[in-house]
Design a protein around this nucleic acid. Structure first.
Lengths: 154, 154
DNA sequence: AACAACTCAATTGTGTGCAATTTAGTTGGT
DNA sequence: ACCAACTAAATTGCACACAATTGAGTTGTT
């Protein structure tokens, strides 16, 4: 047990495993492992799958919009998109109306992959073993945490 | 919205932002950002902080034990420990009773750092903005999810 | 029209994270 | 005692993730 100060007053002892953040981190990695197995046959990583989901849903989007949606910056997205492009799943071209922006669009192969990927969310959901209402609760809580963390690092 | 199959029967439409796993992933990264700010003055990254917490709590441990506690493998821990060693915070030596194992122990500087780090969990907890009971609920849920995911990837 | 301030992507550098392999050391069965 | 099976760490290779910087393009103000 490690001695820890909470606020000004309370002194408690805590161990690594009791940090909520540790479980968030561990859950994220455990999800990643399951995704890796499920996405293996599609040839996608989890972040690549998230990008493709945005494209399947919205069609062509800018890198900027991808970043806002997925909370990722260009340092992550640029090389990731380069790999998706090399895999023949997306195309990239400068936006003619604003040459700073790059439009990312799914290729026909990319669209076709979306049809083969339609049972991925179900498989993950099943592996997570949560009832739908529990999943909703979890999601609500996490979103509040994210908003609060964002606020504190503004 | 992307069409998705859940189980055999139900067909629903879902968008990226509605995947619980997306929020888990996003929360993990948001936590990382706040940790980065808080740990900056201590010169630690979040995973390095987790390792140091185990050492502050238990004293010398093997790499194996670190890995089991933090759910990390040697591929992650070896270079991380090398950096902690280079920073003068830990020492590494072969276990004399089993030359395969490596014992990691905090140096005096490492121990001293632990005293300066005692308000980190409180700062993170506050930034997350959860009531203690909510944090406990979240933790319980996440642990069930982790166990279920582990089970499914066995 | 000029130019400073801003915006968007890409790049660079560092640090995880994990699969797969390698190397060194241990153990159990014969 | 031997050797196969096992175990622990380290290494290799790949893919995020983000801070900081760079370079190209746009906008607003004067």
């Amino acid at each position: 047990m490690v001695t820890v100060k909470f606020g000004i007053i309370r002194i408690v002892k805590i161990s690594v495993e009791n940090l909520v953040c540790f479980d968030v981190h561990a859950a994220s990695r455990a999800l990643d492992t399951v995704y890796r197995r499920v996405l293996r046959e599609l040839g996608l990583t989890y972040p690549q799958y998230l990008v493709m989901m945005v494209l399947w849903e919205r069609g062509p989007v800018t890198v900027k919009e991808l970043g806002l949606t997925l909370r990722l910056d260009s340092g992550t997205l640029s090389p990731l998109l380069k790999r998706l492009e090399a895999a023949g799943l997306v195309g990239r071209e400068r936006d003619v109306s604003d040459e700073r922006s790059v439009l990312v669009r799914p290729t026909p192969e990319g669209v076709e992959l979306g049809e083969r990927a339609c049972d991925v969310p179900g498989q993950i959901f099943e592996a997570a073993g949560l009832a739908p209402s529990e999943a909703l609760d979890l999601q609500r809580t996490l979103r509040r945490v994210i908003a609060s963390l964002d606020e504190s690092s503004r």
